[in-house]
Write a protein that binds this DNA or RNA. Structure first.
Lengths: 338, 338
DNA sequence: CTGAAAGCGCTTACAG
DNA sequence: CTGAAAGCGCTTACAG
């Protein structure tokens, strides 16, 4: 026999489908005797509600889309894990969509493509979408942004204070006696706003400590993978005015790539060049030397994002957008010890 | 105005909803003139088909569930990325579900919990589900298994040859002149079948090369994270008969953890102890020393799994289950060089 | 090629 | 507390 429907259960239990629905959903008060009959029928038939029908009726699916650039970048993997966990605790299922940073894919889910209707809400870590795109968005479905890349928007967003974190990381390098500090990962173009904030913090640290900043020590990168950090570091080692004695990398992959280049060229870390990363991915803790890094509280980020999104699912959409700040700390390890 | 329906488009274009449906889905041949009218109406109203209604009617969703133990284990992250990409090329969307290896979560999706009905098919990398569980499964929805853990089952599965790969890795260690080779990651219990296959390969290599195998060099691990490899290596260094001169780790995280322990205890890699991993995750290539590892062709695994699943969505479910083998290679790097 | 209509399986106002 | 019935928006046999 094919999958049983509400009607089949109702017939078997000798009640109306309304009563079965009430029992299954735990809605209204149902007499004890009828409830028992319905539950028996449900068990006997192995009834499972048809979610597609329920979704159509209710107008929602219980699905949340999480849109991230690259799942195999450990920071996103770790954050995704946290979000999936929190969402499930709230009864929502997360659909992970990886965009590879392609604008069209981000738009498909976020701006309201065909797929968009399947999701009650969206959490987006924007890479390609511009402020202009988002301003044009039909705001009928809740959207929570991760990161402070797009500061001015009609949406909630969850972030850490990138300027302060970058400044703290840089000042730490001054604190351990370094004077010629490079930065790897600046992105002075649209879409690179997060990197720009970190560069701002890097500059602020120089000002606060009254250090001269050699602009040629700020290296620009399209992507934030190991290979990019390795290349950038190689270029810095060949700097005409000599290599830096410390490097602040805008994520841990860049930092690990940079360390690889340093060690393979016989440069000691941290004795000759100290290295700080950003994200606090698991692997950095087991690298040799272990990696000093800015550690955003991913669990809090996940919690704030899910919590805010779910709140929006209940509220009017025109409430004030909120900025939610998650804490971070500087995890000091071997790559800057000494 | 609220979201337009098929009927609204039909009214505006002056045709029946049937014709609109045909145009939207590109089904039947529609006269050029009517098609133009419909397309204009669709554009003017900004019509988007309601996927929940379509799903209910069609009885499928275009969603595939990918069930993995841990998303932030790089191997799964990289594989997930590959599967998402392949699925999208075929017009399917992947819902990633992370189970943390909890049997109940695996069952919820795989065995047919409420959520299961949302997915046309499932790709499962089993960790907790036993052969008995799977034998009991209602086979109405296609399921493709990843890995050869559950060899005897009525399901398709995609895997590499773990025995051969482990044997090749171990023989490579003999080839570079090592004689006392340890293994980290055995799991001699139900659910640890993949690890057991690797141990079998490890043993085979010893037999093939007529080497004596010291059973106490096979270390057992519940989990496969950095910390587990670090601990296991520490124990091996304190081995009563002296440390090994090479280690075969059952994944790259174990290997990186082991290398961390070796280096921090002043043991040189590979001079004193050579290390081989398994999975070929990105970070291993940038570690110092870079990691020799068994490199499964993740892209092929993804392709085979998606391809098989989609084939099943068309076929009768009682066709013979297929075993699909993906290639692998041994990527030789610094951790065994010399 | 096109239209009028049934029905996918559920939820929920409307009566009682 | 319960039942009979409408309707969510679509797809698709059935006629023409």
């Amino acid at each position: 026999m094919s999958t049983p429907r509400l009607r089949d259960v109702a017939e078997r239990a000798g009640v109306s489908i309304r009563t079965v629905s009430n029992v299954v959903n735990g809605y209204a008060r149902v007499s004890e005797e009828r409830r028992a009959r319905v539950e028996a029928a449900v068990a006997e038939l192995g009834y499972q509600p048809n979610l597609m029908a329920r979704n159509l009726r209710r107008g929602r699916t219980g699905l949340i889309a999480l849109v991230v650039p690259e799942l195999d970048v450990p920071y996103f993997a770790e954050l995704t894990r946290a979000i999936i966990t929190k969402a499930r605790q709230q009864g929502y299922t997360v659909v992970v969509d990886q965009t590879d940073g392609e604008p069209d894919r981000e738009r498909e889910i976020v701006m309201g493509g065909a797929m968009a209707a399947m999701f009650d809400g969206v959490i987006l870590s924007p890479l390609a979408l511009s402020q202009t795109d988002l301003a044009r968005r039909d705001n009928s479905r809740p959207l929570v942004l991760l990161g402070e890349r797009i500061a001015e928007s009609p949406y909630d967003h969850v972030a850490i204070d990138n300027v302060a974190a970058a400044r703290a990381a840089t000042e730490h390098l001054f604190d351990i006696g370094r004077s010629r500090v490079a930065a790897i990962g600046d992105q002075p173009w649209e879409g690179g706003e997060t990197a720009q904030l970190r560069t701002a913090g890097f500059r602020l640290a120089h000002e606060a400590r009254r250090r001269r900043l050699d602009e040629s020590l700020i290296v620009t990168n399209r992507r934030f993978h190991h290979a990019d950090g390795a290349e950038a570091m190689a270029a810095l080692l060949d700097h005409p005015k000599g290599p830096p004695d410390a490097v602040f990398c805008y994520n841990d992959l860049l930092a690990l790539g940079a360390i690889r280049t340093l060690l393979s060229r016989g440069v000691r870390v941290p004795e000759d060049v100290a290295v700080v990363g950003f994200d606090d991915i698991e692997t950095g803790r087991y690298n040799t030397p272990s990696l000093t890094t800015v550690s955003p509280d991913k669990s809090t980020i996940a919690w704030l994002a899910i919590d805010r999104l779910i709140a929006r699912l209940g509220e009017r959409a025109d409430d004030e957008p909120t900025e939610l700040w998650a804490p971070y700390e500087l995890a000091i390890r071997e790559s800057t010890a000494g």
